[in-house]
Amino acid sequence: SRYQRVDEALPPNWEARIDSHGRIFYVDHVNRTTTWQRPTAPPAP
């Protein structure tokens, strides 16, 4: 859903941030990219 819980676990090396307008975006520290779409953790084997 559009309103996912912010405290749900993100994949490793990802961080949720809030911009100056109060919107949540996500930072990938490995690839040094950002996205508005919440990343999903790969399925557990």
Rank of each mutant, 00 (worst) to 15 (best):
Q4G: 08
P45R: 12
Q4N: 14
S1T: 15
R23Y: 02
A44P: 06
W36E: 12
N31M: 08
D28Q: 00
R23P: 01
T34G: 02
G22Y: 00
I18A: 14
S20G: 12
G22V: 00
A16L: 04
S20I: 03
H21N: 11
Y26S: 01
E8G: 10
N13D: 11
D7V: 02
P12D: 06
T33S: 12
A16R: 07
P12F: 01
V6N: 09
Q37Y: 13
D19W: 00
P39A: 01
T35F: 00
T33G: 04
R32E: 10
R2Q: 15
A16T: 05
Q37T: 14
A9L: 11
R2D: 11
R5C: 12
G22L: 00
N13F: 09
P39Q: 02
R17Y: 14
S1M: 15
R38F: 04
I24R: 07
E8M: 10
N31E: 10
V30E: 13
G22E: 06
R38D: 05
P42D: 08
A41T: 12
A41L: 09
P42W: 03
T40W: 06
P45H: 05
P43A: 11
V27Q: 06
R17A: 09
Y3G: 07
P12S: 07
P11I: 01
N13W: 04
T40S: 12
N13K: 05
A41F: 05
R17D: 03
P42F: 04
T35Q: 09
R5E: 15
E15M: 05
P42Q: 12
R32V: 03
P39F: 14
H29F: 01
V27G: 02
Q37E: 14
R38W: 01
H29S: 10
N31G: 10
L10N: 03
W14G: 03
A9S: 13
L10H: 03
Q4C: 08
A41P: 10
Y26M: 00
H21L: 10
R2Y: 02
V6A: 09
S20P: 13
T33Q: 13
R2E: 14
T35D: 02
P11R: 01
D19S: 06
P43S: 13
R38N: 05
D28P: 00
E15G: 03
E8H: 06
D28R: 00
Y3W: 01
A16H: 00
A16V: 03
Q37K: 12
P12C: 02
P39K: 01
P43V: 14
R5S: 15
H29L: 11
